[in-house]
Structures are given as structure tokens and as C-alpha cells.
Design a protein around this nucleic acid. Structure first.
Length: 169
DNA sequence: GGGACGATTGAA
DNA sequence: TCAATCGTCCCA
């Protein structure tokens, strides 16, 4: 069963670990689909979080983070990789979950390539989209937490907050 | 208008 | 350890 908008409209620190074990579905034309399990995520939480894009205020790139939970935030990194994020919380509380790993693809750049996710998914609504959504799986996996990756610039505190959630396999 | 850099990856 | 590769952001 598809997760509805209420699932996403909670604090990112609740939604991020809750996404572990859920099924990410990518539907293509002709009815072909790819179904994977989310195995690793990171939480980015509001304007105070110096690792979060929203810490620089509202910009053209991050504006969807200021929308309500359930929207897709996609952006290009290093000129060649699309990052897939799920917006959480309510309007004007910019939070998002970066999906870093799924079954069959470890790494945020690799999973978007596997699932053919690009800039055209920016602003897509996971509760209504006919080409991407997330489903309940019944799994309640245990997990470990670690500091987030690749944000050393965020300073001693924010670069070490254990907001990376990794499912135990 | 220009320059520095990034929530990465894969090869050397 | 390091190059690939380009949109975004910040300063002028």
C-alpha cells in the first residue's frame, strides 16, 4: 500500500528511519516497474542545520524543501549525479531525507541512475505520482546511525550529528 | 560576468 | 589520491 502524505508530514528524524525497509517503486511506460527496498538514508533538518541546503535560505534550487512533506527534491551534484530526496514536515519547515542506498544500488548517485531519476522529478508528489512512490512493506528492520557523509564544511557539530541511518541486513 | 565548489563515483 | 563535469551560489 502506498504511503500517504501524512507519513511524510512529520519531523525528518522520525521519517528518515521509518523509510528503512520500505519499498520504492519506479513505474515506467508499458507497465514496466522497478521495485527496491530502501536500505540507507540521511536526514537534513531545517535552516539551523549547516549541512542542509536550506541553511542558506530559500533559493531556486531548494524551494521545494519549503513545501509540504511528500514532495521529491532532486538536484545535480558534481556535474553528473542526481540526488534523490524526500521532503518531510510541513510548509515552511525545510527538511528532507536523502536516499543513499537501496537493494541493488549502494550510493545516492548510483540509485538514481538505476531508477532513471533526473531533474524532471523535481517537485513530483510521492502521494499522487504515477511514476514514483513508496509503499509499506511490513518490514521493521533494525538499524545503526552514523555521521552524515560529505559535509565536512558544515562544521564540527553539524558534520558529526548521527543522522545517517543504515538498515541492518 | 566570473569563479569556486559540491549531500559522488570509479579508476589510478 | 584524483579527475570528471556543470548547475548553483556568491561576489563584483
Amino acid at each position: 500500500m502506498r504511503l500517504d502524505s501524512h507519513f511524510y508530514q512529520r519531523d525528518v528524524l522520525d521519517v528518515a528511519p521509518a523509510l528503512l525497509g520500505k519499498t520504492l517503486v519506479r513505474m515506467f511506460e508499458k507497465g514496466n516497474e522497478i521495485r527496491v527496498t530502501i536500505t540507507e538514508v540521511e536526514a537534513y533538518r531545517g535552516t539551523d542545520d549547516l549541512g542542509c541546503h536550506a541553511s542558506k535560505g530559500l533559493t531556486q534550487r531548494n524551494r521545494v524543501m519549503f513545501s509540504h512533506g511528500g514532495m521529491v527534491y532532486v538536484y545535480l551534484i558534481y556535474g553528473m549525479y542526481w540526488m534523490f530526496n524526500v521532503v518531510t514536515s510541513v510548509e515552511n519547515d525545510p527538511q528532507a531525507v536523502l536516499v543513499r542506498g537501496v537493494t541493488g544500488a549502494n550510493g545516492p548517485g548510483k540509485l538514481t541512475r538505476l531508477l532513471a531519476i533526473d531533474k524532471t522529478f523535481y517537485g513530483e508528489d510521492l502521494s499522487t505520482s504515477n511514476r514514483i512512490w513508496i509503499e509499506e512493506s511490513g518490514l521493521k528492520p533494525s538499524f545503526v546511525t552514523k555521521p552524515r557523509i560529505g559535509i565536512d564544511y558544515a562544521g564540527h557539530y553539524w558534520s558529526k550529528v548521527p543522522w545517517r541511518f543504515i538498515m541492518n541486513s
